[in-house]
Nucleic acid binder design. Structure first.
Lengths: 214, 214
DNA sequence: GTCTATAGCTAGATAGAC
DNA sequence: GTCTATCTAGCTATAGAC
């Protein structure tokens, strides 16, 4: 079946908001790309800010759909962390605009004047996901399965590594020498990120004590 | 001595571009914050895009000022990587808008219509810095000092972890429970990021072989 | 649910006095 | 080097016919 107008609008709006941000996109442009007149767009979404929030909610749902199920798994912390990281990477690697929109939410304040209904809720859901990662690391540190790191800092690094990579567009393609969103690249990054979290970069043969200065 | 108009403009423009992006900031707003009329601003910068490029150039210089000197150091790869990561973190932690502007450059395409002079050059300088990190990791993999990772993917993770953290604003403050840019937080993150790159998250006592599934 | 028409405003940029 | 005044074009949003 062909998509409803509402779905078509969300689709093109997501692509454009991801590329140029809230302020950089006009309602006229979105309407045209969706094959509608501008006024018809305001029939489906009462304001530009409401459209943005609707786009953001879809993105958050996409990520939650992957990550939430992994949080109720059993097993040791390392295994659950692996599963959660896999899910996060998959959710970002699956759709080329997810990471960019998430990053904008994390990094930009304001943008939409006079916070519209739903924005705070969407941000809270992102916060909740982040807190799940922090809790996991804290648990691992408590049971001594992970080293006594600063869990909040490690989670910041993890989020940055995961989200930035899939938001890096042309820059990322140039660094990799191939498309970030190719199936092989996504699989490689999933592996590489878990490996980095597990045991860093040093060769196992030289790991880790003899390289620690003090 | 008090700052020239040009310096004052660059200062306020950087703060606003970092917060809301190129399209989200008006010349009127910048002028007012700099204590000038809008037309005076166009006397100093021939267009909004030219102003943005000037802001970006300052940011790139700030990062180069920290990182470039570390690239000519001697010693083993792990030591040089530590020095480069320290420099990167310091350059981002020193000024609260550096990371956000760098992130926008890495993540956003287009924005400024019909690329103004200097933009391509600034992007090339960022590329060159990234390539230095890739080269360092490649060298370490060649001498077996680092495990045979995918250097490009590892660098993507490193950049994301470093840049995102200092761009994460209120979200980062909430995750940490204290300001991202406090002196202690910057020092902690510098340490944590190096530690993560060196040996990951697992406890040294359980590291790394016995946790690898295959 | 889609359209045309338009209101009301702000944007980037320019002209020219001082 | 700063200003006021102005141009053109874009914006979000609304009114109301069909």
């Amino acid at each position: 079946m062909e998509p409803s107008s509402r779905e078509k609008i969300l689709e093109v709006a997501e692509a454009r908001f991801a590329q140029r941000g809230f302020a950089g996109v006009g309602m006229r442009e979105v309407a045209q790309a969706a094959g509608l007149g501008k006024s018809s767009l305001f029939h489906h979404f009462e304001s530009k800010a409401a459209l943005y929030v609707a786009v953001l909610e879809r993105v958050v749902e996409r990520i939650e759909g992957h990550v939430l199920p992994t949080l109720s798994l059993g097993g040791n912390v390392a295994g659950r962390l692996d599963a959660a990281v896999d899910a996060l990477v998959d959710s970002l690697g699956e759709h080329p605009t997810t990471a960019r929109l998430l990053l904008r939410t994390l990094v930009e304040d304001d943008q939409l004047g006079s916070e519209p209904a739903g924005l705070v809720a969407a941000e809270a859901r992102v916060h909740s996901l982040i807190n799940a990662f922090v809790g996991l690391l804290r648990e691992g540190a408590g049971t001594n399965e992970l080293r006594a790191a600063a869990p909040a800092h490690a989670v910041q690094a993890l989020i940055g590594a995961a989200v930035y990579h899939f938001a890096s567009g042309d820059f990322g393609d140039a660094v990799l020498g191939r498309p970030v969103f190719s199936a092989e690249s996504v699989a490689s990054y999933r592996h590489e990120l878990k490996q980095l979290l597990r045991s860093g970069l040093l060769s196992p043969s030289r790991a880790p004590k003899e390289n620690l200065p003090s």
